[in-house]
Amino acid sequence: MEERQEIVHLPGGRFRLVDLSRPLGPTESEPSPPRLRRITHQEGAALWRQLFGIPEAALPGGLGFAGEYVEASTHASTHVDAPFHYAPFSAGERARTVDEVPLSWFLGPAVVLDVSDLPDGFMIPAEEIEGRLEGMGHVLSPGEAVLFRTGAGACWGAGEFFERGCGLGREAVLYLVERGVRLVGTDAWSLDRPYPLIGAEWRRRRDPSLLWPAHFAGAEREYCQVEKLANLEQLPAVGSTLVCFPVKVEKGSGAWARAVGLVPAEEGPG
Rank of each mutant, 00 (worst) to 15 (best):
A110Y: 12
L140A: 02
L107P: 14
R37E: 14
A230E: 14
E68T: 04
M136V: 08
A152I: 01
H215I: 09
G153H: 00
G44I: 01
G61S: 05
A45N: 08
L17Y: 07
L113T: 15
E93I: 07
I54Y: 09
R35Q: 13
L118M: 14
A46V: 13
Q234H: 13
V249K: 09
H138F: 11
R14C: 03
G12V: 03
A110S: 06
D192E: 01
R164Y: 05
W212Q: 13
A158R: 04
M123T: 12
G44T: 00
S240V: 09
D19M: 02
E93V: 11
V8W: 12
T186I: 13
Y195W: 09
G64Y: 01
L133I: 10
E100T: 00
I129T: 10
Q42L: 06
V173W: 07
G268H: 03
V226Q: 05
G252R: 01
V8M: 05
R94D: 03
D19N: 09
F148S: 04
R204W: 02
A158S: 08
A46D: 14
W256H: 11
I54E: 08
L183H: 02
L168K: 08
G135F: 15
V115Q: 04
L147K: 04
C155Y: 15
G92S: 01
K228E: 10
